[in-house]
Design a protein around this nucleic acid. Structure first.
Lengths: 168, 168
DNA sequence: CAGATTGTTCAAATTACGTTGAATTTCCCC
DNA sequence: GGGGAAATTCAACGTAATTTGAACAATCTG
């Protein structure tokens, strides 16, 4: 009750817009990304014109901090692009609409680092295994480590394929 | 200090075993799954013999509840298989070693439900869009919704491919 | 069937994660 | 260079997810 509605309060979205943003929130959940990323991307997706950080704060009712960090993450994913408007100091943002680019950004950002780290760990495992000659279960461990390495290789081979199968 | 070490306290893993389990913990993180799933799978992966729930509690130092729920999730993923040993009431578990099966279990469990739900939402969007004739930005929204639907279709087509590219 | 063993459930505690908002920094314009 | 709008940072907070553990249910055994 008694909701003030002065100049900088939040604007109202249509049910249709809410629903579309809801879909992006669900996509974010599917990718285990923060809800705010879905909201922000969805909002920009719905806007014919690039929006500023402040627009997002107003429309979505999120904090400036959230908007700022969310936009940063979306930028590093390549899901959102800064648009420089002449005569306006504020940064405006529009969405990347090519799924392939967003997907590869996601992989580069959220999958590759883990794979690289796993690669490092597996190498070190290999050398440790060499030293461990004492147990009679060497063969068993060797087999398991080999299998892990096989999985790792397969994962590394699949990633680039994924982008390939999304049309340019 | 003064750590009791009676019959049911936790057993000690070798550094090599710890490291391998660590790798599975990282894989779990990569997939945004609970750490305990990584631990449990890793422990079973390391064991030549199937293990019981109690073995996992002892070796990993996790609670019975965690082990029980973790095993259930791994079962529904198809990452772990119950092994029935004659003359032993307890359920023993061994790991599934085919990456393809685990991956498809993960997709079926953690991706497909979202995709199906998105499909439902998109259909309802379509009908709502038809009603919304009032705005002049119908063309714009139509375009965006079409694009979303395109993404959705692409995702549905890619999923089955993924399993294909993991060797049987 | 009593007793013992195994496994599950779920509320509470813990931990991890995301969000907020105020302070700070950056950057532009006059 | 001062003033101020725009954006970033980050500690404190709130929320959501996971883990715990004790009560409970199921299952066997003698």
């Amino acid at each position: 009750m008694a909701s003030i509605n002065r100049k900088s309060s939040l604007e109202k979205l249509t049910p249709l817009q809410e629903e579309i943003i809801g879909i992006f929130i669900e996509i974010a959940q599917m990718l285990s990304l923060p809800r705010s990323l879905g909201e922000i991307y969805g909002m920009l997706f719905l806007s014919p014109e690039p929006l500023t950080l402040d627009d997002l704060v107003k429309w979505l009712g999120i904090s400036k901090g959230s908007a700022s960090q969310g936009l940063r993450q979306l930028k590093t994913l390549g899901a959102v692009r800064p648009q420089y408007k002449t005569g306006d100091r504020r940064e405006h943002f529009s969405v990347e609409l090519e799924l392939r680019k967003i997907a590869s950004g996601f992989l580069k950002e959220h999958v590759e680092p883990h794979l690289q780290n796993t690669a490092r760990r597996l190498e070190s495992l290999d050398s440790q295994l060499g030293v461990t000659t004492d147990h009679l279960d060497y063969d068993f461990l060797r087999d398991r480590v080999d299998r892990l390495e096989g999985w790792h290789r397969a994962s590394q081979e699949i990633l680039p394929l994924m982008s390939t199968f999304l049309k340019p």
